[in-house]
Design a protein around this nucleic acid. Structure first.
Length: 851
RNA sequence: GCCCGCUUGGUGAAAUUGGUAGACACAAGGGACUUAAAAUCCCUCGACCUUCGGUCAUGCCGGUUCGAGUCCGGCAGCGGGCACCA
């Protein structure tokens, strides 16, 4: 018997699909549309198992929905701007565009053989001028709509390379290339007013019922709505007649437990004071050496500097508190100034212990006495009643908060306010390989938007990366431009946009990828929203939140219908493909290391060595496959050896899609064996010939398989769908039914396997006399009558432990089940004459006898 | 540090969402076929014990319940995110 040859079969069917054009999407008012989208990839040049898993999931959904009769849109593109291209330019002396487009070609070559049902006619890369030109148009419309503004913000500055560093380029406070201590530098940058939409973005999360609950929770926490009190302390000893310090607190109830006030090193007052105080200036610059990331700030040792200034307690004119500059106060949150209540905030407590400040508890748990309640090493943050707080004593925390806000407002020194942790989105990047910000700086007119007819503002090709910094800045002519307003000599903005902007509207562009406006109203109205979005959980916050903002901004500027402000109806966050990491010490010494790919490493039970040279390799933790840690596996080997269907079947089996999966080579072989087995079964049946026939057992099994596989796919439990198909195959292999009946069952199996293994499914379908393409055949339906079992097996428990099983009719009543259970010999042996005190019969489930 | 997850046999996992823990696979062991190998097929496979029976088992400790992998509280380990990686 001939073997299934994926190498010849797969290209044959891919050509057939292409010829039939079944994946090319076109609006069709008569059919219900379904838009399935996987997060588009960064063109690193190689696909990895994470891509295969992600795109196979989307493909299963797309093919399944298509066979359910939906008009499916399933596009693909490239998130093509970003730093790796500039890094490659520096390391290999190749233009970022050349590198990126070559990578796209390479990845497409690797992806095509997987047989995804993608509409490649809609493909684009975000670095195509046709795409980023429309993005510039969006930027200008958003600027006009008041959604864009400029303000100062800090960046990581490498003083040796004279360049801005991304957070990931800062290692232990030093630049990754130069090793120089990183400084914070303030630049004027462009921002999107996402924080104006905080409440709306928060409220709308309630409506995202088909998003994972954990993602909704993360977004809510990220937006971070808090209700608190903002008020002004009377300030003493400050220069320039500054006599107030405005602070924000979410715990106004603890005001009588305050023992200090603290301001951020970046607070205007701190900046003013350091002019006359060298020690404070030194302290502040020390603080500014920490990275700009929140993680760095939070992890840094809590430090403070006593300014010598004091503030007066708002409820006691005789009570003053010292004012510190403290490194853990964030200038971006609240007012950049707080009062510290050490008894009820862990950071404040650590700080107070370090600097010998008072710790007075003002909230005590219900069972504690005011006189004896003390704070030890841990702050008390649970509910309780107020103590040591004059007119607040005895109140609950909520009552006390309201009362303090009422009195502060009555005194006119502050008010209750709602604040959000969400900050405006800074989009300026001092880099070449990004979408140019379409702005002109004119000495006479100031900031002038580029004219729409001059878009796209294209990146110049003649750039070099021999020097660090932004090549746009030092380009001899690109910056020179006539002012769009007055026509005089002016200069282009040389900052480009954050790559998150590119990915915040690509899903909308896919609905009309060649339109000469950002979107086409008719196409957007038909195709939006994305019905099913699939991607990594690592994008749970930023990408998804920015996209939600952008959809709103596009609706406000007329580029999307109002119905599309929540662009993703359903979200599935797939788990990551993980792998061990391998590193060796960096030749320059120090703490830096060199990362190695798995195929550079010889792994054994005891450890790992380098293949060439045999040096010892440190085996690191199993983490998400990433280019920077080089722990990536190339799926091409599997595809070359076994074919696409095996790779697709393999990544869909075993691990539930939402869970991380650690890559192991074993199993691909097994997947391949299984597909061979299905092929063999089909071949046998085909050779046996004869007319189609029926068989009661096979009909029941087929109905069960249709039901279970459908449910598996609908609920994203692809691993369970695969397990059911294994079961169905085992049953068919053992079946003694006539060949004609097995042929009917196998045709249905081909349909059920089609979303996962479309090439094999087509081959089997054709072999067994199926009409046309199985990819275009309607999804099979299970006869409900065949799904009902007449007899059920019920477990019998005695005191919650399983002791026996009985078989009962499906519709047996409780009394009959109870009688049958009590009559069971094994049950009688366990009961040993005892009479059950209670009998619990859960129909169709279980019987529990309590003695 | 803060926010969010995850943890079940040697391995990946399943368990109708509070009702028989381990479906379906991988690996391993045994057998059939074969001169042999490959391929294929069959059997065994959580641990322990006195083995047609029983005890213990879902990261650890406690709780709720007739009944807990599932719910609640605490702890540990691992992972994701933390606003300039994408």
């Amino acid at each position: 018997m001939s073997r299934y040859n994926a190498r010849t079969v797969e290209p044959k069917w891919q050509a057939a699909w292409e010829e039939a054009g079944i994946f090319t999407a076109a609006p069709d008012a008569a059919r219900e549309k379904y838009y399935v989208l996987e997060m588009f990839p960064y063109p690193s040049g190689r696909i990895h198992m994470g891509h295969v898993r992600n795109y196979t999931m989307g493909d299963v959904v797309a093919r399944y929905k298509s066979s359910r009769g939906f008009n499916v849109l399933h596009p693909m593109g490239w998130d093509a701007f970003g730093m790796p291209a500039e890094n490659a330019a520096m390391e290999k002396n190749v233009h970022p565009g050349t590198w990126t487009y070559q990578n796209i070609e390479d990845m497409k070559t690797q992806m095509k053989p997987l047989g995804f049902s993608l509409d490649w006619t809609r493909e684009f890369a975000t670095c195509d001028p046709e795409y980023y030109g429309q993005q510039q148009a969006l930027f200008l419309d958003m600027l006009e709509a008041g959604l864009v503004y400029r303000k100062n913000a800090v960046v990581n500055w490498d003083p040796v390379d004279m360049t801005v560093l991304a957070n990931e380029q800062v290692e232990n406070g030093r630049g990754w290339r130069s090793g120089a201590l990183v400084e914070r530098k303030e630049l004027t940058q462009w921002f999107f007013r996402i924080s104006d939409m905080s409440q709306e973005l928060l409220d709308a999360i309630d409506g995202l019922t088909d998003w994972p609950e954990k993602v909704r929770l993360m977004q809510r926490n990220w937006i971070g709505r808090s209700q608190g009190l903002q008020f002004r302390f009377a300030l003493h000893g400050a220069p320039d007649g500054i006599d107030e310090l405005e602070v924000y607190t979410t715990r106004p109830d603890t005001l009588f437990g305050a023992s200090f006030a603290a301001i951020s090193p970046d607070h205007p007052l701190a900046r003013r004071l350091e002019q006359d105080n060298a020690d404070l200036a030194a302290f502040n610059s020390e603080c500014r050496r920490t990275g700009t990331s929140e993680e760095d700030l939070e992890k840094a040792e809590k430090k403070g500097f006593d300014t010598g200034l004091t503030v007066t307690h708002p409820f006691d004119a005789d009570w003053t508190l010292p004012v510190y500059v403290a490194n853990f106060i964030l200038m971006d949150y609240g007012t950049g100034a707080i009062f510290g209540c050490p008894a009820h905030d862990q950071r404040d407590l650590d700080f107070a212990r370090k600097y010998g400040l008072d710790v007075t508890p003002v909230v005590a748990p219900a069972d504690a006495l005011a006189a004896t309640f003390e704070i030890g090493a841990e702050a008390y943050t649970d509910p309780g009643h107020l103590i040591n707080s004059k007119f607040l004593d005895g109140m609950s925390i909520e009552e006390a908060k309201a009362e303090v806000i009422r009195r502060i407002e009555a005194e006119g020194v502050g008010e209750g306010v709602t604040k959000y942790r969400l900050r405006d989105w800074g989009v300026s990047r001092q880099r070449y390989w990004g979408c140019p910000i379409p702005i002109v700086h004119c000495p006479d007119c100031g900031i002038v938007p580029e004219k729409k007819e001059n878009l796209p503002v294209e990146l110049p090709q003649d750039v070099n990366f021999s020097q660090p910094g932004n090549p746009l800045d030092r380009h001899p002519t690109w910056r020179d431009v006539a002012c769009p307003a007055c026509g005089g000599a002016a200069r282009r903005e040389t900052d480009t946009m954050d790559t998150f902007v590119d990915s915040s509207w690509y899903f909308a562009r896919f609905t009309a990828p060649r339109a000469n406006t950002p979107t086409d109203a008719e196409a957007a109205a038909y195709w939006m929203n994305v019905d099913q979005y699939i991607g990594g959980v690592e994008h749970a916050i930023l990408h998804l939140l920015y996209s939600r903002f952008f959809a709103r901004a596009m609706a406000k500027t007329g580029h999307l219908p109002d119905s599309a402000i929540e662009p993703f109806n359903a979200l599935f966050t797939q788990g990551m493909v993980t792998h061990e990491t391998y590193s060796t010490p960096h030749p320059d010494g120090g703490e830096r290391v060199v990362w190695h790919t798995p195929d550079e490493v010889l792994r054994s039970e005891s450890g790992a060595t380098l293949r060439d040279g045999g040096g010892a390799v440190t085996v690191g933790p199993t983490i998400k496959m990433s280019k920077s840690k080089k722990n990536v596996v190339d799926p091409e080997d599997i595809i070359d050896q076994y074919g696409a269907d095996t790779a697709r079947w393999f990544v869909m089996s075993d691990s539930p899609p939402e869970r991380d999966v650690e890559w192991t080579a074993s199993g691909a072989e097994a997947a391949w064996r299984h597909l061979q087995r299905v092929w063999r079964l089909a071949s046998e049946v085909a050779e046996a010939g004869g007319a189609d026939a029926t068989d009661a057992d096979l009909e029941r099994a087929t109905a069960r398989a249709i039901h279970d596989v459908t449910e598996g796919i609908e609920s994203f439990a692809f691993n369970k769908a695969v397990a059911k198909l294994y079961e169905f195959t085992n049953l068919l292999a053992k079946s003694k039914a006539p060949a004609g009946a097995r042929r009917v069952a196998l045709r249905t199996m081909a349909q059920l396997m089609m979303p996962m293994t479309p090439h094999l499914a087509e081959e089997v379908w054709t072999l067994l006399g199926g009409e046309g393409l199985v990819s275009a055949a309607p999804w099979p339906k299970a006869d409900p009558a065949l799904l009902v079992e007449d007899q059920l097996t019920l477990p019998i428990q005695v005191n919650g432990k399983r002791r026996a099983e009985i078989s009962v009719a499906r519709d047996a009543d409780k009394a009959a089940v109870e009688a049958q259970a009590l009559a069971d010999p094994a049950v009688q042996r366990v009961l040993d004459g005892a009479v059950p005190k209670k009998v619990i019969v859960v129909p169709g489930r279980i019987v529990n006898l309590v003695v």
